[in-house]
Amino acid sequence: MHKPELISAIADHTSMTKEQASHVLTAILDEIQLALSREGDVVLIGFGTFSRQHRKARIGKNPQTGQPIEIPATNTVSFKAGKKLKEIVNG
């Protein structure tokens, strides 16, 4: 499912227009991004947890040449599914 399909589904399940649903979804996604950039975790009970993870700098290997390369430190986001989501996905 892509964002426009999700917006349509939200509009169908509520009394919102697609434009209103789009604004709500955009606001939710913006707040998740801001929270991850500031605090590190977003917990949606029953759905899952988004958390910011730090990856240390490390030495990797260029797959084409085999030469070692330095991979810089970076932050990334991980998601751990909640119990209810796992149950739904697994039937």
Rank of each mutant, 00 (worst) to 15 (best):
R38Q: 12
V42N: 03
T74N: 04
A35G: 08
R52L: 01
M16D: 03
G46A: 02
G60R: 06
Q67N: 12
P68M: 06
L29E: 09
V24Q: 13
H54T: 10
L25I: 11
V42D: 10
N62R: 05
I69W: 10
I71C: 00
T26R: 14
T14F: 03
Q33S: 12
A27G: 14
Q20P: 04
R58Q: 02
S37W: 05
F47K: 05
D41P: 01
F47P: 03
F50D: 08
N62L: 04
V43G: 02
H23M: 13
I71G: 02
S15G: 15
I45M: 06
T26F: 04
Q53G: 07
E39N: 07
P72W: 04
Q67F: 02
G40S: 08
T17G: 15
I45W: 01
I71E: 03
I71R: 04
S22T: 13
M16S: 09
A35K: 01
F47D: 02
L34E: 01
T14A: 05
H23D: 13
E31V: 09
L25Q: 01
H54D: 12
V24A: 15
G66L: 12
H23K: 14
A27R: 08
M16H: 09
L29N: 07
H23I: 12
A73V: 05
A35M: 00
E19Q: 15
I69F: 11
T49D: 03
D30S: 15
F50Q: 07
L34W: 00
I45F: 05
R38N: 05
L36C: 11
A35S: 05
S15H: 01
F47V: 03
Q53V: 14
T65V: 08
T17F: 06
K56H: 11
T74C: 09
S15I: 06
Q20S: 08
Q20H: 06
T74G: 08
L44I: 14
G48P: 10
Q64N: 14
I45A: 12
H54C: 07
A27I: 00
V43E: 10
S15R: 10
A73Y: 05
R52D: 00
K61I: 14
Q64E: 13
E19C: 11
T74Q: 02
T49L: 03
N62H: 00
A27P: 07
I32F: 02
H54Q: 14
M16A: 11
S22N: 14
I59C: 06
Q53H: 12
L34A: 15
I71L: 08
H54P: 02
I59Y: 03
I32Q: 00
P68S: 14
A73E: 12
T65P: 10
G60E: 01
L29K: 07
Q67M: 08
F47N: 03
M16P: 02
F50K: 09
H54N: 10
Q33G: 08
T65R: 09
I71Q: 00
M16G: 06
T26D: 15
L34I: 05
S37G: 12
P72Q: 06
R55W: 03
Q64T: 11
T65K: 11
Q53E: 05
S15Y: 02
L44C: 04
T26A: 15
L25S: 03
S15C: 04
R58L: 07
R55F: 01
